[in-house]
Design a protein around this nucleic acid. Structure first.
Length: 114
DNA sequence: GATATGACGTCAT
DNA sequence: CATGACGCCATAT
């Protein structure tokens, strides 16, 4: 069931060329599951290790959300691929991978006051 | 089946 | 920029 979802998400991640990055939300959207950014995480945690450049997947804004050493390793790998860092984040302006030309449209703003 | 959790995203304050 | 709240959905217990 969900395996299909992971396969698709992982497939998108694999499409990210060296020196490029993407956000969880973008991967989810490109995979056909807008809003399921969390599932991308599961896909990476459970299905990574197989030619899946998990280190090219970041949080919104190019922030590395990985805790501990993994995060450190990710930062190092990206930096090694030529990714420019701005403080603790990645320069999405230059490295954001445009999946198939379609970019995730920003959400609506009318969110009824709470 | 219900509840809690999580490498998230976005908006409001 | 920090904090809080809500949405989204597959796993784990």
């Amino acid at each position: 069931m969900a395996d299909k979802m992971f396969q698709r998400m992982l497939a998108q991640v694999r499409r990210i060329p060296r020196g490029k990055v993407a956000t969880y939300g973008d991967v989810a959207y490109a995979s056909g599951f807008p809003g399921s950014a969390r599932q991308v995480v599961w896909a990476l945690r459970s299905g990574s290790g197989n030619g899946v450049p998990w280190h090219r997947v970041l949080g919104a804004g190019g922030k590395i959300l990985l805790p501990g050493e993994s995060g450190f390793e990710q930062r190092m790998r990206l930096h090694n691929e030529g990714v420019a860092f701005i403080g603790q984040r990645v320069d999405m302006k230059l490295h954001r991978h445009a999946f198939f030309g379609r970019s995730a449209p920003k959400k609506k703003k009318a969110r009824a006051r709470r």
